[in-house]
């Protein structure tokens, strides 16, 4: 017997014993198709402006920094400003996300832009988030050519652009968005839920920022 059959047989001997196997199968099928929500904290269930305020407060609690712009065309200037403020070289890594591509980067003449996955040599990367989660100050990023996963982890500084209207109250809303975009039961290759910059408490349980991932996470919220 294969390891697979052997393991499943052992489990079935216990699980099936004394219960109706058809009912078990129905229960599993129903749960997988209905995806019951469970308990969603009241914390994030707020009107728009308060939800955004909670998102910002939570993100800052976890050491992310935040700025906001009126629309996408203001992003290049905001990014350049961030680089100058932190004495960073005037170059960024960016994916193919159309919303970012249309922002008009040529306005920042000195800014060098590299496209595609990071090779580990980038100081700063700019990504566009799928959504924000107010209850924990988290941003959700989906893999792909638009926003390569390496941009989330290799650079020293990670700048994430987020539309104000994409700030959800809770984690469950992310599943709704994913299902809408990819279909029920389908996922992007990687979904990264990022809450603040990388950190470690492994030496004497003192929390220090900048472990293996970015030392700084900066969020730019677009009002439009």
């Amino acid at each position: 017997m294969s390891a697979r059959d052997s393991i499943l047989t052992k489990i079935r001997q216990v699980n099936v014993a004394g219960s109706d196997d058809t009912a078990r199968k129905q229960a599993v099928a129903a749960r997988l198709s209905d995806s019951p929500r469970g308990i969603v904290p009241a914390r994030g269930q707020l009107p728009d402006s308060e939800r955004r305020a909670l998102f910002e407060a939570m993100a800052q609690k976890f050491a992310a920094t935040i700025s906001s712009v009126a629309d996408y065309s203001d992003i290049p200037r905001a990014v350049s400003g961030y680089l100058r403020e932190h004495n960073l070289p005037a170059d960024i890594r960016i994916g193919d996300d159309e919303r970012l591509a249309k922002a008009g980067w040529d306005k920042e003449r000195t800014l060098e832009i590299r496209h595609g996955a990071s090779d580990g040599g980038d100081m700063t990367a700019v990504s566009h988030a799928l959504a924000g989660i107010a209850e924990t100050g988290t941003v959700a990023l989906a893999s792909g050519t638009d926003n390569p996963t390496t941009l989330n982890f290799l650079p020293e500084h990670h700048i994430v652009v987020l539309k104000a209207s994409d700030i959800d109250g809770d984690l469950e809303s992310i599943w709704d968005r994913l299902r809408e975009k990819f279909g029920k039961g389908q996922m992007p290759r990687a979904l990264n839920l990022v809450t603040g910059p990388s950190r470690s408490g492994d030496i004497e349980q003192k929390i220090l920022l900048g472990a293996h991932g970015p030392r700084a996470l900066h969020l730019i919220i677009v009002d439009e």
Binding site: E135, P188, A190, N192, L193, V194, G196, S198
Partner: peptide
């Protein structure tokens, strides 16, 4: 409230 990185790989 949430760890820094929660990653779903598929």
């Amino acid at each position: 409230d949430m760890s820094c990185y929660t990653t779903y790989s598929t």
